[in-house]
Every structure is written in structure tokens, then in C-alpha cells.
Simulated scan of single mutants.
Amino acid sequence: MTRLAVFASGSGTNFQSIAEAIHTGKLDASIALVVCDKKDAIVLQRAQKLGIDTFVFQASDFPSKASYEKVILDELKSRDVEFLVLAGYMRLVGDTLLQEYPGKIVNIHPSLLPSFPGKDAIGQALQASVKVTGVTIHLVDDGMDTGPIIAQEAIVIEKDDNRETVTKAIQTVEHRLYPQTLKNILERQNVSEYH
């Protein structure tokens, strides 16, 4: 059983879908820790309800990314975490974690990368008036949403869609695709094919 840490900054709906997949036996893993950079994020309440340890930090309390990632790394090591899952974590991962977990950090992004990387991908897609967007799961590297793609699924944007309806459609895909993709990755235990 693989020990995961989930990194999140917001409401934690993807964290919840992963936790449910573990609970129902669809995903052979355990969540050893939730790492969060916002002390009032709803994901922390979700983790607390499930009895999952949390580690909360504020980047502004540290002189550098390396300094707070070193503290995060200590938390991960103390819990024997083997794999990192980014689920709405709004910070770029730095060298400290990338070097310690090579090929073992994945992220989910609400667009068909390489289109619309970075913040507000749904807003970017609507602004561009594209007909199709979707969800991407990718390995994390030192760029912004630039790592090798593992899985993608498209959704069609209808004429009368708005931010709310597109967000809902994307989350529906995310909550199914992320646990399924994690299952595939962890069963293989080898993500080198994506490099």
C-alpha cells in the first residue's frame, strides 16, 4: 500500500475523491498527510473529519521556497510518504521536493495542456472561446504545468455554458479520472514511460 501526501490549497474536492477511492478499495493507498499553504482552506476540515494528519504552512513565514520545502520534506519523511499528489495546490514545486521524489509527483490541471497553463485555466478557456477544454494529469517538473502528460480527457463547451457549468463538468471528470489514473500509476510503480 503506497503512502501518499496530498498537497492542496482550496476546497479539497479532489482530495475527497481520492480518499473515497481508498475507502471503497478502488485505490490501494493511504493518505499519510495533507499539506496546505492556506490555514482556512476547506481541505483541512475534510482531512480532519477523516482523521488524516495535516501540515499547514505560510510561505511568507519563510525566507525562501527551499526553506519551507525543507520543513515539508521533514514532515513527509517522518511519515514515510512515498508519492506526492497535487490537488489544487497553487504553488510551484521546487528543487527540494523534486530531487527527493523524482518521477513521484503528479498534478491535475483543469485544461487540456499545453493549452491554458497556470492560474484560472477555466477562465482562460472561456476567454479564448474554445469549443473544447478538459482535464490533464501530468508528472510535475520544474515548470508551470509543463511535465509529461499521463492522462487527459476532453469536455465540450456548449454555447450556453458559463464558468459555473464548465467548472462542474471539469470537476466531474477530475473526481473520476484522478483516482483511476493514480491507481494505474501506483500499480505500475514505474512512471519512467512518461518521461
Score class of each variant (00 low, 15 high):
2 T>C: 13
3 R>A: 12
3 R>W: 03
4 L>N: 04
4 L>S: 04
9 S>Y: 04
9 S>T: 09
9 S>W: 05
12 G>L: 04
16 Q>S: 12
17 S>M: 03
18 I>P: 00
18 I>E: 03
21 A>G: 03
27 L>Y: 01
28 D>M: 13
29 A>Q: 04
32 A>N: 09
34 V>I: 06
40 D>F: 08
42 I>G: 14
43 V>W: 07
44 L>P: 00
46 R>C: 10
47 A>D: 08
52 I>G: 07
55 F>R: 15
55 F>V: 08
56 V>N: 10
57 F>C: 09
57 F>T: 10
58 Q>T: 14
60 S>N: 14
60 S>G: 14
60 S>R: 14
61 D>E: 13
61 D>T: 11
62 F>W: 08
63 P>H: 11
64 S>M: 01
65 K>V: 10
67 S>V: 04
68 Y>S: 08
71 V>N: 07
72 I>Q: 04
72 I>F: 01
74 D>Q: 13
74 D>K: 14
75 E>C: 07
75 E>H: 04
76 L>P: 00
76 L>G: 07
76 L>I: 05
77 K>H: 10
77 K>Y: 08
79 R>T: 06
81 V>P: 00
85 V>S: 08
86 L>I: 01
88 G>C: 08
89 Y>T: 02
90 M>P: 00
92 L>T: 08
92 L>H: 06
93 V>M: 07
94 G>M: 08
95 D>V: 12
105 I>N: 02
106 V>C: 05
107 N>V: 07
108 I>S: 11
108 I>A: 12
115 S>A: 15
116 F>T: 07
116 F>K: 09
116 F>C: 06
116 F>D: 06
117 P>M: 10
118 G>A: 10
118 G>F: 04
119 K>P: 08
120 D>V: 08
121 A>G: 01
123 G>Y: 02
125 A>E: 02
125 A>L: 03
126 L>P: 00
127 Q>C: 14
127 Q>E: 14
130 V>W: 04
131 K>C: 05
133 T>I: 03
134 G>R: 01
135 V>H: 01
136 T>F: 02
139 L>I: 01
140 V>C: 05
141 D>W: 09
143 G>Y: 06
146 T>G: 07
147 G>A: 10
148 P>Y: 05
149 I>Y: 04
150 I>L: 09
151 A>T: 11
151 A>M: 12
152 Q>R: 13
153 E>K: 10
153 E>V: 07
154 A>D: 12
157 I>V: 02
158 E>G: 15
158 E>C: 15
158 E>A: 15
159 K>I: 13
159 K>T: 13
161 D>I: 06
161 D>P: 00
162 N>I: 07
162 N>P: 00
163 R>D: 14
164 E>V: 15
164 E>K: 15
165 T>K: 12
165 T>V: 09
167 T>I: 15
168 K>T: 14
168 K>R: 15
170 I>K: 09
170 I>Q: 08
174 E>V: 06
175 H>M: 11
175 H>K: 12
178 Y>Q: 02
184 N>R: 13
184 N>I: 10
185 I>Y: 03
188 R>F: 08
190 N>P: 00
191 V>G: 14
